[in-house]
Amino acid sequence: MRYIRDNGGFSIVEILVCMVLIGLIVVFILPSITFGYLQISESGGRTRAVYTARKVAENELANRENSGSDTLSITFGDGSDRVTINVRGRIVETEESFGAHGDKAKIRLFVPNK
């Protein structure tokens, strides 16, 4: 073994340490490779939650009452031609959670009175 040291090469111990380090680096890099897939799944969950929230919102929209106490103001034109219309109704919020971190998709809409 003497001449190996004389040639200034690496010892077997050095090589093994190097391989262990490569292994550790790989273990830490692997999760970042699958991160993209997790993000895509998460966005799928978001889409599904939005559709579910929309379903609830559509049902609220059909359910028009007279008791809404919120006001929606719409202003047309500007300057002296300005016209403002006030509509009475109620503000409805629907919320649907998704994903592992409890994120929420929220829809807020105005349901005019009958």
Binding site: G44, T47, R48, T52, K55, E58, A62
Partner: peptide, 9 residues
């Protein structure tokens, strides 16, 4: 697989 369910008035 993937599924969506929604309703429209």
């Amino acid at each position: 697989s993937y599924n969506i369910t929604t309703e429209v008035l």
